[in-house]
Amino acid sequence: MANDRLRAAIDAAGLTIEQVSVGVEVDPKTVERWVYSDARRPHRTTRLRVAQLLRVEETHLWPADRRPSAAPAVAELVHLYPTRSAVPFTLWSELIRGAVEAVDVLVFSGQFLVEQHDLLPVIRAKAAEGVRFRLAVGDHSSPAVVQRAAEEGTAGGLEGRVQLMRRYLHDVAHLPGVEVRAHGTILYNSIYRFDGQALINGHAFGSLAGQNPTLHIRKVPDGTIWEHYMRSFERVWDLARPETAER
């Protein structure tokens, strides 16, 4: 299994594998092996140099006990980003394009997924390969969306972005394995699940989504954080109304 924490920390620091290798004076292929195999770890002196370079704790990158079942809550957390805007573009791309089984999205708008990450062609290609997509977006006329827009100071703006996203998704809602639903629940968290990894964007009163902290988590045996948020997604999904996909 890849060392997702190390990869996330490198991305968060704005560095490349080559730059890390220069910083700790090892071959780039050695750093690649650390990233793509959790079983490969450097000597402690080198681990400390890597941690110092990336400005994180060494034990976060390489926990003393690597068995997920020993500390599932710790193993589940890959990285905490101070804002959604701080999540590296490369991470979004890896997660979106790396999905091979299922993608679940819970948002009010999520417009940036289409306009910044070109989601629609990915949906078309991956749906043809058997990947399942469940996309829950807001109902622009619901009290929850209207209230959220007023609270964040974008009265009318959020409603428009929601309508735009629903229009975007109308073009793929007819595809086999793709389901789009509209919901009017309070959006406590936006959830972006890609197979066994997810980004959880919490929301704070009066703040825009991009300004709020985002958790990068992964599914591990006996983990409770993952199940907690996936249950939340399922509850909203059950309440949401299927969108029509007339062609």
Rank of each mutant, 00 (worst) to 15 (best):
A99K: 08
G138V: 08
A125H: 05
E159R: 07
E115M: 12
A155V: 13
V107M: 10
D171R: 15
Y168T: 01
G98E: 01
A125Q: 14
Q116A: 14
H140M: 11
I123V: 15
P143K: 01
E115H: 12
P143G: 04
R161H: 04
Y168R: 14
L95N: 05
E151T: 08
P143L: 04
E159K: 00
V103I: 12
D171H: 12
G157W: 07
V131A: 02
L164R: 13
V145C: 13
L158Q: 04
Q163Y: 00
G157T: 08
V100M: 14
S109I: 05
R97N: 14
A173C: 13
R161G: 02
L169G: 08
V145K: 00
V145F: 07
L135C: 00
A102I: 15
A136M: 06
R132H: 10
D139F: 06
V131H: 01
A144E: 13
K126G: 03
A173V: 05
P143N: 01
P143W: 02
L158R: 03
R97F: 07
G153H: 05
M165S: 13
F133G: 00
H117P: 11
G130Q: 04
V146A: 05
V131F: 09
R166G: 13
G98D: 03
P121F: 07
Q163M: 14
L164I: 12
L106A: 12
F112L: 09
G157Q: 10
F133T: 00
G110I: 04
V103K: 05
E129T: 06
R161C: 14
V146F: 03
S142T: 02
D171N: 08
E101G: 09
G156E: 00
F112E: 03
R148I: 02
A102M: 15
R166A: 15
S141P: 02
I123Y: 10
R134F: 02
E94S: 15
I123N: 07
V162G: 08
A102C: 12
E115V: 13
V172E: 02
R134D: 01
H140Q: 14
L106T: 06
L106N: 07
A99H: 08
Q111R: 14
Q116M: 13
V131D: 01
R167V: 11
R124H: 02
L164Y: 07
E151W: 11
S141A: 13
Q163L: 15
A173S: 14
F108N: 04
F112D: 00
V122P: 04
E129V: 01
R167G: 12
R166Q: 12
D139C: 06
V100L: 13
G156K: 05
L120T: 02
V107F: 09
V107D: 12
A155M: 09
V137H: 11
A149W: 09
S109Y: 05
